[in-house]
Every structure is written in structure tokens, then in C-alpha cells.
Design a protein around this nucleic acid. Structure first.
Length: 501
RNA sequence: GCGCCUAUCGUCUAUCGGUCAGGACACCAGGUUUUCAUCCUGGGAAGCGGAGUUCGACUCUCCGUAGGCGCGCCA
């Protein structure tokens, strides 16, 4: 049987470094054995999924050299590869589960579930999850209520007692008590499947033989094997990779680290360095090699060599590896890399109109535009405070801008302008006042090129990184927001801006 | 709170019961270099704690401890 693995990203945000990490191992595993690597888009969350995000993920993985044999862009014999285009399949599968009694309709309103949750968290007996009320409904009664047009979801029927015995390819046997497994919603009220259903159905239909994914999924594995059993399908083999961590050991998050692949691209990390470094996370070559290419990794890949401690993503080591590669490049190639990276005519044509009015000598250009090609701009943290706004205020504004930028659908001059104009209005500031600290954060200076155009050229991810750097600088100057202040700010943000943090 | 996973230098890791516990990043010192960087050489730095199994445990088992993840009509 042909080895088939897949990466199944959800297009809900910037392409995540963790996606590349998991994709890399799936790719290497499949290619090592002459198998196929598939890309599937898990866009079952209608609220948050977007085509822009999907495009960005595809582009980022391509940039890294992780090519797939089948996917939404290249097609394949198991198409479509976008879950939003496969809903009939899931609905049909869900119907079969109900017919077999493996799933049941649930009419509980979100309000009741929220109430239930609240009650459960106060009791602290350890039980959190659906109480099974609708599981007891007779099929006639359920049928009647469905016919009456009552909104409902489909839930997985989970055994009440005993242990679920699982196999993870890296850990061996794992036992999880059934009574700790929630009656997972399989089909939402909008008719869309949840991850759990869609994932199992697609992995089966697409003949995935090995599921290599993040450890965060280990605890929902019982639901998945239960589904395979209910369908009467042979489950694939499962391998759960340890999660990438922040320096404080928590799961890698943008709070502490840039997590967008696009940021690393923008900062001038070579794709082969990122692949090399990611291949060092939780993995080692039998011969101790630490410098390698994607092809070399695939050639010698042995999934049993994955180690299980959660690796901390260390920017310094990544940069050190990148430096070594840059130094080894022949001059012509280095020049070529710089050009494809962004030092090219196309960029200058964008920059020049901004710089021209500010030039007295040609020699003024490069210093003026340098920040557009930099990663971290160095400036005195105090500069952020010489803006007529208090440190606390600036910290809040930076955070608000991050949220607004993250949630903006597009990255265009108009979109950026709107974000800040709206912010100025909601904050009761003149645009000029509001922007003052942002000039420092983005360009490192009070006098600079037009800021919205600069953000556009820098790209969303580098812009976000600059705001993050500014918050860090502020924290150094003693103006960090406390956890409580942040929570408070998020509440205000939701109320005033109508966004989620 | 409950369940599961994990545990070697600060960090990434090697070690398939017997090693002076090795390498890489970072750090420190010295050398090369007009400065710096590079490069070279050297150095400090680790088996979470306690029982057990064994002639012998970093390695196997158990109990602690710590960390992580999960407990959504998100994935």
C-alpha cells in the first residue's frame, strides 16, 4: 500500500511556523518511502476561514520547498481538497452514524451549554463536558423535533465506562478512560462538520495511511478511533509530534515569538535555513549531522528518531544557522538572494515616490529607507514616550493596533488607513497624536517616510513584529501592561471595536 | 479541578544497562584580522527527587515533583 501523509492547515490566519514543522515531518516521512504528501484545506470554520489566508499558506509552504502531490491548487484523484467543498460527504457520513446509533441529535441551545459549563467549573469535580441530556432522547422524539424544524447538532455517542486503548507510533499504548471523552459535536447547526468528523472522513476517503500531527490532538484521539470503528474503517497509524514551545515552555504563540512564516521570510531567513532548523526540532540524524537539506532529511528520515520533549524554538540558533549559510553563498548567489528577497527595482519603485520629496542629496535615500529593509530597529525605549502620551497609553495603543491589524481582511493602503483613522476616532485622539508612537515603532525615528505606505511595504507580519518590538521596548522602560490590564483592555476592545482579541 | 503526555548542559539534542555522558547554539578566554564581524583553539556547563530490578542504571518499573497539552457548534 502506498504511503500517504497530509498536512491539513486551517486558513484562519497567517501561515504558522508550526504548520511548516508538521508539514516537514509529513513530507519527509512520505518521501522517504516513495509515498505521497497531500495538502488539504480544513476550512470548516466559516466565520474565520478566508481565501487570502489559504493563498498565504500555500505560498509559504511552497517557499519552503514543501511541495505536495495533491492539493486544492494542483488537484488530484481525491478532489476536492477543500473541506468547504465536501460538505455533502460529511452530512452523508453523519447520517450513517445516526442510523447506526453512533451519533445522536442534540437540541441543547448554546445558552444551556454555557450554563452547564459554568456550573461544572464551580463544582470542581473534574468533569467538564456535555452531560448527555439529548443522548437519552428516543429516536421518535428526536425525529419529531427535527421535523418541527428545531435547531440541532449531531453529537458523538461515547461509551460510558471502560478505557479507550490507543496506539501512538511514538509513545506506544495510551489508555484514556471513556468517561473523560466528551460527546463531541460532529455536525454543527449550520450543517458544517467539526474538525473531528471532517478529518476522519477525509483521511479515510483520501487513503491517508499515516497521520502525523501535533501532540495537542492526542487527547482527542479516542473520538477519532471511535469514529473509525463506527464507520467500520481501518484507522491510519497515528504519530503525535511534541509541540514547539516559547522560551517560557508554553505552546509556541505570537505573544512571545514571531510565528508567521511570512515574518521569517521578511526578516531574511533563507527557506532552507528554516527547513534545516525545523528539522532539528525534536529530531536528530543518526550520524549527528546538523546541517542538511530537505532532500537529505527525506532521504534518511526515520520517524522513530523523533524525541518527545517539547523543543523551544530558539531564534538565536536559527539566526546563527542562517548566518552560516549566508556566508557560504557565492557572491553572485548572495546578490540573487537579496534581489528575490526584496532589494530590487520593484521595491525601489514603491519606495522612491515616498522618498523623493525628502531628498536633498542622493545620499539621503538609503538612510531614509533603511528601516524598510531591517528587522528590528534600534531606538531608545524612551523615544516611544516622547510623544505626549503616557507609557501606559502607548502600550495600550500598540496592543489595540496589533489586534486591529491581525483582524483586517486585507492589507492595502486603504485598509491600513482605515484602521488608524478609526482608532484615532475611538480613542479621542488626533490622527497625528495617535501616530506619533507608531512612527517610532515602525521606523525607529520621528521623522520618516509616510507611515501607512511604509507598513504596506513592510507587510503585515513585519509590521506586527515592529509593534511587538515596541511593546517589548516599553516593557524594558517599565511600561508593560499587566495581565489584568491586558484582560481589561481586551474587554474594552471587544466592546468598543467589536473585535475579538 | 480532571485526563493524557513529557523530563540529559541556559537552549536543541546524542546515548538502543557498562561512555572521562558526545555534538550544536549561547556564554567566557585566547589567537588570526587596520576596527568589527568571520575564522581557529580552549574553557565552564546536564542525567528532577525517592524507592525498586540488576553484578552494574541517564537508560527498565513504581511513587512523587515539575512542565506541557486537552477538557468549544475553533482547528
Amino acid at each position: 500500500m502506498k504511503i500517504r501523509t497530509r498536512i491539513a492547515p486551517s486558513p484562519t490566519g497567517a501561515p504558522h511556523i508550526g504548520t511548516a514543522y508538521v508539514a516537514l515531518f509529513n513530507y519527509a516521512f512520505a518521501k522517504h518511502q516513495g509515498g505521497e504528501f497531500i495538502l488539504r484545506i480544513e476550512d470548516t470554520d466559516r466565520e474565520r476561514s478566508s481565501r487570502e489566508a489559504e493563498q498565504a499558506i500555500l505560498a509559504a509552504l511552497k517557499w519552503l520547498g514543501l511541495s505536495w502531490d495533491e492539493g486544492p491548487d494542483v488537484g488530484g484523484s481525491f478532489s476536492p481538497y477543500r473541506q468547504s467543498e465536501r460538505t455533502a460527504l460529511y452530512q452523508d457520513a453523519a447520517r450513517r452514524l445516526v442510523a447506526k446509533g453512533a451519533a445522536y441529535p442534540c437540541f441543547c441551545a448554546p445558552e444551556r451549554l454555557a450554563e452547564l459549563r459554568r456550573a461544572q467549573t464551580t463544582v470542581k469535580d473534574g468533569f467538564l463536558g456535555y452531560d448527555g441530556r439529548c443522548a437519552a432522547l428516543s429516536s421518535q422524539e428526536a425525529q419529531r423535533r427535527i421535523q418541527a424544524g428545531e435547531a440541532h447538532v449531531l453529537r458523538l455517542r461515547v461509551p460510558a465506562e471502560g478505557d479507550c486503548v490507543l496506539r501512538d507510533g511514538l509513545r506506544g499504548e495510551v489508555r484514556i478512560p471513556w468517561n473523560k471523552v466528551d460527546h463531541q459535536v460532529l455536525l454543527k447547526a449550520d450543517g458544517f462538520p467539526t474538525y473531528h468528523l471532517a478529518n476522519v472522513v477525509d483521511d479515510h476517503l483520501m487513503e491517508i495511511t499515516h497521520v502525523i500531527r501535533g501532540e495537542e490532538w492526542l487527547s482527542s484521539l479516542p473520538k477519532h478511533v471511535l469514529l473509525y470503528q463506527a464507520f467500520g474503517w481501518q484507522p491510519p497509524e497515528f504519530y503525535h509530534l511534541p509541540l514547539l514551545r516559547n522560551p517560557d515552555k508554553t505552546k509556541l504563540s505570537k505573544r512571545r515569538n514571531p510565528v508567521s512564516i511570512l515574518y521569517y521570510q521578511r526578516a531574511g531567513i533563507l527557506p532552507e535555513t528554516l527547513i534545516n532548523y525545523l528539522g532539528l526540532m525534536a529530531y536528530s540524524f543518526a550520524d549527528g549531522r546538523e546541517q542538511f537539506t530537505l532532500a537529505e532529511l527525506a532521504e534518511s528520515f526515520d520517524i522513530k528518531r523523533v524525541s518527545l520533549g517539547g523543543p523551544i524554538f530558539d531564534l538565536q540558533k536559527l539566526q546563527s544557522f542562517n548566518g552560516r549559510r549566508l556566508r557560504e553563498l557565492p557572491l553572485d548567489e548572495l546578490l540573487g538572494r537579496l534581489q528575490t528577497w526584496g532589494l530590487n527595482e520593484e521595491t525601489w519603485r514603491k519606495v522612491l515616490p515616498l522618498a523623493q520629496p525628502r531628498l536633498n542629496q542622493l545620499a539621503d535615500l538609503v538612510p531614509l529607507a533603511a528601516f524598510l529593509f531591517a528587522d528590528r530597529q534600534l531606538y531608545e525605549p524612551a523615544a516611544l514616550l516622547n510623544t505626549g502620551l503616557s507609557g501606559q497609553r502607548v502600550a495600550r495603543l500598540l496592543r489595540l493596533a496589533q489586534w486591529e491589524i491581525e483582524r483586517s481582511a486585507e492589507w492595502t493602503l486603504d485598509a491600513i488607513k482605515q484602521i488608524f483613522e478609526r482608532m484615532a476616532q475611538l480613542e479621542g485622539l488626533k490622527l497625528k497624536q495617535l501616530l506619533a508612537p507608531f512612527y517610532i515603532a515602525i521606523s525607529g525615528a520621528v521623522v520618516s517616510l509616510p507611515i501607512f505606505d511604509s507598513m504596506l511595504i513592510l507587510g503585515r507580519d513585519m509590521t506586527l513584529a515592529r509593534l511587538q518590538y515596541a511593546r517589548e521596548a516599553l516593557a524594558e522602560a517599565g511600561c508593560a501592561l499587566t495581565k489584568d490590564e491586558l484582560a481589561e483592555l481586551e474587554k474594552t476592545y471587544r466592546a468598543q471595536y467589536g473585535g475579538g482579541g
